[in-house]
């Protein structure tokens, strides 16, 4: 018994100091799992958005979750769901999006127990002339996350457009809609 304990002490002493010293194996494992779980949420966000899975998207947020872009603020899953309907309309059943998709990259996660922050980047790629993928919008996300009933949820997501700026983006969207209308005629 004594020998065993000594062995364990020796084992731990021999291990080079981790940045998170003083943590048990369980706690360290928990941190690794938390990081992977939060990275997955960042990816699920783009997946549900691009698939127009509004319920799945809203469910990524905490009960009091907020979505923010400039002065636009939507709080709570219902409000966030409505925002998507207003933005994209109701998709037909079995909808497959071949018009656009988001590359979600550069995740940086900071864990603080049952809270966390995350920064990431997004690049919206949409259909260009002849169907080739055309990068249209590049931005950053800054998130606060919370562990709610054992699951990580987005408490606050702030979308910071980088290229183009919101003003430029308004013009780009107008031009694209006009071009699409023209095509339909």
């Amino acid at each position: 018994m004594m020998a065993r304990r000594l062995l364990l002490v020796a084992l731990l002493a021999a291990a080079p100091a981790q940045a998170q010293t003083g943590l048990t194996i369980e706690q360290r494992l928990q941190r690794v799992e938390d990081e992977l779980a939060i990275k997955r949420i960042l990816i699920d966000y783009s997946a549900t958005q691009d698939a127009r899975d509004y319920a799945g998207y809203a469910n990524l947020f905490a009960k009091e979750g907020e979505w923010v872009n400039g002065k636009q603020v939507h709080k709570g899953r219902d409000a966030i769901h409505k925002m998507l309907v207003a933005l994209y309309g109701a998709p037909p059943p079995g909808y497959v999006n071949v018009e656009s998709y988001h590359i979600s990259s550069n995740p940086r996660i900071e864990l603080h127990g049952d809270r966390a922050t995350a920064k990431s980047r997004h690049l919206l790629v949409w259909r260009g002339p002849d169907g080739a993928p055309l990068p249209a919008l590049a931005g950053r996300y800054e998130d606060e996350l919370i562990r709610e009933d054992g699951h990580w949820k987005i408490l606050r997501r702030v979308d910071y457009p980088v290229m183009p700026t919101p003003e430029e983006w308004g013009k780009v969207i107008q031009a694209r809609r006009a071009a699409q209308q023209q095509e339909k005629k």
């Binding site: 590049a138 183009p164 983006w169 013009k171 780009v172």
Partner: peptide, 12 residues
């Protein structure tokens, strides 16, 4: 490396 393009669009 993505740069700001003409109308502000991201340009690889």
């Amino acid at each position: 490396f993505v740069m700001r393009g003409k109308d502000g669009s991201p340009r690889p």
